[in-house]
Design a protein around this nucleic acid. Structure first.
Lengths: 220, 220
DNA sequence: AATTTATTTTAGACTAATCTAAATTTAAAA
DNA sequence: TTTTAAATTTAGATTAGTCTAAAATAAATT
């Protein structure tokens, strides 16, 4: 019933790759996601398929099974709860927590995680705005739109980020662009796809298309 | 600079065995402490000696070096801080936390542990009364005496336990014998070495020599 | 002091996860 | 449609940690 640290990492990564595509996930994608070689990924794919976490058709890629999704969602639940704990309780900045949570997500105890969940007030989202699966593996998927797709005049709330890197998160801090901010697109520059925004109705900001692609917005 | 999970466990175990004896720690003791075979322990001893965590004289046992102690104390620090967190913050009973803390102690981040330490108020002792090493590896060693060695009429404070087992900790809860209790030895039964105690001056309790051997007392 | 017993060490094998290099299969281009 | 390129799989080796069984050493007993 126990999975190795490595198996948990593979299933989490494959789950996330599956989220991004409708068709099967490839060996190369998996290898890239885990910074390993295709042959290593292939070995693990065979093992995971044997354990019924994946369906694997040779040369055709893989698909998660329900059993696999369950494990992956549990790892993601642990990761995101710990991330929130690190930010909310220990005062880390949201760009500092990923590496630590990567380790903590492998501490196995349902009792622990459910108590942590309770302690944090049964949160629905982590500090990056990503949804936290509940104890049954249910995950709340909001219909979020990248800021770059908003039309002139449209407004919404910053709800999550795509890029979790230090650099991006520092940029957001610097410009006071936090999760929860209300935005409105004042103008679109069609030449470079940059945007003029109003933030919380009291300031304006000009952002590049790169930034706009990495902010996910909830439309009211 | 990073040690494997296994190396950390060996160093922690060997440190604890060293605490209990003045002479060298034997291969068999180490194997027993880690529920493994002497040959496995021997392999690891060679590796740890190579890394200068231990001094090893063939057939003569091992001794921790300063370098080894430093690693061990850091693991112990992490373990005990997490144990306290689990009890104080998440509401676990002190007999439920060991297995979880065994996993959490291997999460490596000085920043994390120092923030946790701060969050918990720089505690000096874990829920079992064991001292928590500070960030520099300094550990406060109180002169504690097993209850069984107290003479008739002597009194003191329950400060720590030797046995960390569920069974013992449940016994203590049942009889309201907590860390911090004031005790006085009313009488000693020389036949079976059991003791009659007064607890907090408001109740009495008869305890066996087994119980008395597992309670550590600070004398005023 | 010689022999038995217990402990420690070595030798050789196994598993999980990884790698390189070669072979196979699929997809793309000519 | 044949050839080339890319992706995937297999084969064989490596490393960390573990094991069993046998050999070497130390300690205990006669």
């Amino acid at each position: 019933m126990e999975n190795s640290y490595t198996i948990e990492n593979y299933l989490k990564a494959i789950y996330k790759l599956s989220e991004k595509t409708t068709d099967t996930v490839t060996t190369n994608d998996i290898a890239a996601a885990l910074s390993t070689k295709a042959s290593s990924a292939n070995d693990m794919i065979r093992k995971l398929a044997l354990k019924k976490y994946l369906k694997h058709e040779k040369y055709r890629g893989v698909q998660m099974t329900d059993k696999g999704n369950k494990v992956a969602l549990n790892v993601i639940r642990r990761h995101r709860l710990w991330e929130l704990f690190l930010v909310k309780t220990l005062g880390f900045k949201w760009n500092e927590v990923h590496v630590i949570a990567e380790q903590m997500e492998h501490v196995v105890s349902d009792d622990l995680i459910n108590r942590l969940d309770h302690f944090l007030g049964y949160p629905k989202f982590d500090p990056h705005g990503d949804p936290i699966p509940d104890a049954n593996g249910k995950i709340q998927k909001l219909p979020l739109i990248p800021l770059e797709e908003l039309k002139k005049g449209q407004s919404g709330t910053v709800t999550a980020v795509v890029d979790h890197s230090d650099a991006f998160l520092k940029y957001l801090e610097k410009h006071q662009l936090n999760i929860g901010c209300k935005l409105k697109v004042i103008d679109r520059n069609e030449y470079d796809n940059s945007l003029n925004l109003s933030i919380n109705k009291n300031q304006t900001l000009h952002v590049s298309s790169t930034v706009a692609a990495n902010l996910l917005i909830k439309i009211q």
